[in-house]
Amino acid sequence: MSQTQAFPNATRGETRTVQIREVGPRDGFQNEPETIATPDKIRLIDALGRAGFKRIEVASFVRPDVIPQLSDGIEVLRGIDLPDDVDRMVLIPNSRGLDNALAVRDLFEEATLFVSASQTHNTKNINRSVEETMADVAVMGKRIVAEDLTLCAVIATSFGCPYEGPVPMDRVLDLAEQFAAAGATEIGFGDTTGMCNPAYSRAFFEAAIERLPGIEVTAHFHNTRGQGLANAYAALEAGCRSFESSFGELGGCPVPKGSTGNIATEDLVSMFHEMGVDTGLDLAAVIEAAREAQSTLGRKLTSHSIVAGPVTWYPAS
């Protein structure tokens, strides 16, 4: 049986291609309770670079006392050795963080700004209202674009808030339009505490793609309630072609407790490959990087592919 044999009717007569950005080195590492040594971070990121990723979220310019795990971001950026065609992405929380980032402008190509669609979550996460955050976004966006950096945006709690419950779709898409006006060329929608379901995922991404022409729309799902891959599949069927995930299923939201990790990159890649969807990634290399992370952290990670390995044959059509 051919290893490239896809599931029946999976591609509807066309080859679909998706882009997956790896966010584990930032979104994943930040939730680890034990300090990860800088050389270990560099080694793991370099392993991800060899797997074929074109974009990796490497660091964050948050205050070191807020997230000590990421306090070595500049050292990591200086130490990694990625292929020339891999963009390095950093997360920027506010104008002060942007000042610090631009002091080492040559170390990255993409900058991400973020907000929570929920007032309560935004306040608990960064101690500012949504309106205050978006006012800062308008200023930061101009500075980032002027530096010839790619401006990306992430809207957390896009699919529900653990404090406020349902978040209206129009509120999320209104924020997305504000980011686009600030210069963002990509907008990610985060299921920060795993509250989405496949039916809503499909409806949401159909609406987002229609409302944001010319913007790269990205799906960022967490697997808190076991629906992460199903939500990603629903987003794919809605037309989404950009995804974020974390090797080893690392990550989770710092607030509130109990919000488990992002969907595992290796599980997402495995699903797409079995469906005949091209990711451009070496699945075996992604799994190996996740196993390295598991060994480095000294605990069992929750990815399925770490245990099972890649599928070596696919059902015939």
Score class of each variant (00 low, 15 high):
W313V: 13
E75V: 06
A180K: 14
R128N: 02
R241W: 00
R43N: 12
A59I: 12
T185W: 00
P68G: 10
E110R: 14
L268W: 11
E177T: 11
G188W: 01
A232W: 01
R55M: 03
T279R: 07
S95N: 14
D81G: 01
G52Y: 05
D282L: 08
M134R: 07
P64E: 07
N94F: 05
D40C: 01
D85S: 07
L229N: 06
A138R: 15
S270A: 15
P162H: 12
S259M: 09
F247H: 12
V269N: 07
S246F: 02
G276A: 08
D148F: 01
A182M: 07
T15P: 00
M195D: 00
K54R: 15
Q69L: 12
L77T: 06
T4D: 14
T11P: 00
Q178E: 13
E186R: 15
D191Y: 06
S246M: 01
P162M: 12
A10G: 10
A138M: 13
A199L: 14
S245E: 02
E249T: 03
N231R: 09
S259Q: 05
A264I: 11
N31M: 15
S245T: 12
A219L: 02
L236R: 06
G261I: 05
L297H: 02
F29G: 03
L268E: 10
G194V: 11
V23R: 08
R26H: 04
R225M: 11
G24P: 06
R26V: 08
D27P: 06
Q69C: 12
A308C: 07
E34L: 07
E131Q: 13
P162Q: 09
T15W: 04
A111T: 05
G251P: 09
T120P: 02
L98A: 13
E216H: 11
V167G: 03
C253H: 03
Q19S: 15
I92K: 04
L113H: 04
F243N: 03
L44P: 02
L281G: 09
L173H: 01
E266L: 10
T279W: 06
A111G: 04
G28S: 09
K142R: 15
M140N: 14
R202E: 15
M271H: 02
K257G: 06
D99P: 08
R43W: 01
S116W: 03
